[in-house]
Amino acid sequence: MNSMYVQGNSFLHQLDPRTKILFVFSIILFVFLFYDPMFQFLVTVSLLPIVFLSGLTTPYLKTVKFMFLLVFLIITVHGLYNPMGDVTKVTWQLTENLSFKHDALIYGAVMSFRILSIGTATLLFVMSTHPSDLANALVKWKVPHAVAFMILSTFQLIPIIGREAKVIMEAQQARCLDVKANMIQRVKHLIPLFAPLFITSFMRVHQMSQVLECRGFSSTGPKTSLREMTIGFRDYAFLTAIALFALAAITLRAVVGGTLLPITDFVLMSALIGIWIVCSIYFFDFLWKSVRKKVV
């Protein structure tokens, strides 16, 4: 697969890419309106049913683990070392001079769940939207044809360049380049690997530009597309729901402020430990798989 798109026929798949782009933006808006880990957590969790209903559970769980690694680092490192707010207010004293501070932990938790909810929404979008549809949607939004093509062709180019890089790596090893040498040597070796890659990629792009000319890319006049896209009832319903949520959220923000409920130590500890648990599940899964691979 060249992109992260997962074929399907769910409600989400059938939405217009433009609707989904608005959806991602609205999630970003929600999570930045409030500075409250509980709320961010709720947004994240409320996205999970959509993941399930779109039939994207397995690919989602596979991809989200990289996000969890990041989130694990953020909440842990911030909680321990971020000197923001009241540093005397300690939530969890680990050792004499190592402790999770209350304010720092709030920041870490908010950031973590922001990343998770925005990440989930984006994954939902990318996994349910065919890249060609994305390009088409952009064209409809008056993004120039050429820019939309560039975005689309990136999806295509990445695996090709990846494969090319492997061939070049082998070709240079065949010239006695020791790729397993020490770090300094390896940095020096970037030139023999990247120079040919750059040249071949450049030649490839140059040729592509000629191919495009021959296919009438720069011909003036209206363009058509094989993929049909119409904004229908579904999209309007979905957009209305988003608009209602947004309205509610903005009102809430205006009336109550950035924090909805008082943030207790219990909430923060749950966030921290929760993220640790999920991360360790992924970690043990990874360990188990590598061991099994070695044995088999």
Binding site: V167, E170, A171, Q172, A174, C176, V179, K180, A195, T200
Partner: peptide, 22 residues
Amino acid sequence: HSVAKLSAKVGYVFQNSNHQTF
């Protein structure tokens, strides 16, 4: 043995010179 070691005994000329030449 590593590729670098073996390559001193077995030379491999790739199809596309652009991959080896820089």
